[in-house]
């Protein structure tokens, strides 16, 4: 590459867009990045207004190859997945899916990922669900449980170890 970002001395990674597409490929519609930067996504981004996630910039950075900047940013973990960017993109592009892909790449490249998400993964691997039945309180502040309400016990996966094994395999090989 003959391009250098003089503010950070970073060089664009030629394969960045390809990597993003690899993740998405097959799982989503093939995503050509013909974004013309109208910014409609960011205008309506439910996360930007709170967390400065700029979907149009994610599109530009992943296209131009400055993907490291994205992988290390905390903003990508603040997408609320409201899907408005995808819904309203005049080029039918999907910033939300690119953001997913970038996060997936961050996970694979061992970047610091948000603990909330890694905990959920652990829970699913352990029980099949993101959480187990909780004790809640009613409007009068009385503790209530699933059983107490007369609901039948949850019927989760029979062989959790088996599921765990398959999931690990699917994750490692990456389905596409």
């Amino acid at each position: 590459m003959s391009i250098v970002d003089l503010t950070s001395m970073a060089e664009p990674e030629g394969e960045a867009q390809k990597k993003v597409n690899e993740i998405i490929k097959g799982l989503k519609e093939d995503i050509p990045n013909d974004c013309y930067q109208c910014g409609k996504c960011t205008s309506g981004c439910e996360a930007f207004i709170l967390t400065e996630l700029e979907p149009h910039k994610v599109m530009a950075l992943s296209k131009s190859g400055f993907i490291d900047e994205l992988l290390n940013s905390s903003e990508i973990w603040t997408c609320v997945t409201c899907l408005k960017c995808k819904e309203r993109c005049p080029q039918d592009l999907a910033p939300v899916d690119v953001i997913f892909a970038v996060k997936n790449i961050a996970v694979v490249s061992g970047k610091q990922i948000d603990s909330g998400y890694s905990n959920m993964l652990q829970a699913v691997l352990g029980t099949g669900f993101i959480q187990s039945p909780k004790e809640v309180v009613d409007r009068e502040n009385n503790a209530v449980t699933r059983e107490g309400l007369g609901l039948t016990p949850m019927k989760g996966p029979e062989e959790i170890a088996k599921l765990q094994q398959v999931l690990m395999k699917a994750a490692m090989e990456t389905l596409r």
Binding site: C38, G39, K40, C41, T42, S43, C45, I49, K84, R88
Partner: peptide, 28 residues
């Protein structure tokens, strides 16, 4: 303003309101 609104709303007194990210000033 270089940008495109995602939606336009009509507030209770009929006034029109929209958010737009201006890519030149980088401001919403």
């Amino acid at each position: 303003i270089r940008g495109r609104p995602s939606e336009i709303d009509v507030d209770e007194d009929g006034k029109l309101i929209y958010n737009i990210f201006d890519t030149t000033t980088q401001k919403l």
